[in-house]
Amino acid sequence: MNPADNIIEISAMNFSRDDRVIYNDINLSVPRGKVTAIMGPSGIGKTTLLRLIGGQIKPSSGSIKFNGEELVGINRKSLYKVRRKMGMLFQSGAMFTELSVFDNVAFPIREHTDLPESIIRKIVLMKLEAVGLRGAAQLFPSELSGGMARRAALARSIALDPDLIMYDEPFTGQDPISMGVIVRLIKELNDALGVTSIVVSHDVEEVLSIADYVYIIANKTVIAHGTPESLRQETSPQVIQFMQGRPDGPVPFHFPSDDYKEELFNHVN
């Protein structure tokens, strides 16, 4: 890949929280204008990766570049400037509970621009129309279903027309219909707005259906990457286990423990 075509460029990054190593020497790049998926078993810090890209937390070492600009060690003002080009859809949606759907979507526009209210209204309605929620503009987040809340949050994260949208587990806890809606939305928004999308998920099938490029993360680093087709051909047992959802394999079903028989029968107390 040509580095200029990558919106995100992560190289030799290490990150540990307290004494626990989360990422060990990870390299990852996100091609511009594509849907890139980051998959892996739960609890390995996929969300952490998005927060690292968003500059909310700092890596212990290594570099993260956005549009060629180094994000590690950047000052707060420049970081905030960079973030205006990023949108992030949080797992819970993170709608502001005291604002209506309309005001939620209008919020980033009002904060970052001095546009007159009439234009803001048009922009907001267009964004809501894109996610199919124009009719719900006056509802409050508490009145929305989980899937609708996530779509409303999506409308908010594209309000400022970002270059990059990050989706944190967009499919978890959704019924099949809203899951289908969101899968379609991610793809459509990516193609229509020409943005770059990063989808963090462990829902293999949904992700593979829309992703252009996939990274699989386990054991603190990238264990496989490639197009969905090439990953299906992958022979590494770890990848096969994850892609096919087998209960036992390189990632053991059992939490590390003493010998079973030993513990059952020879327990002295």
């Binding site: 968003g54 400037k81 990023m86 993170a94 980033p108 904060e111």
Partner: peptide, 14 residues
Amino acid sequence: ATEQLSSLEMMAID
């Protein structure tokens, strides 16, 4: 807990 603070951060609002 509902990530509203993080989400503000990501919208470049302190």
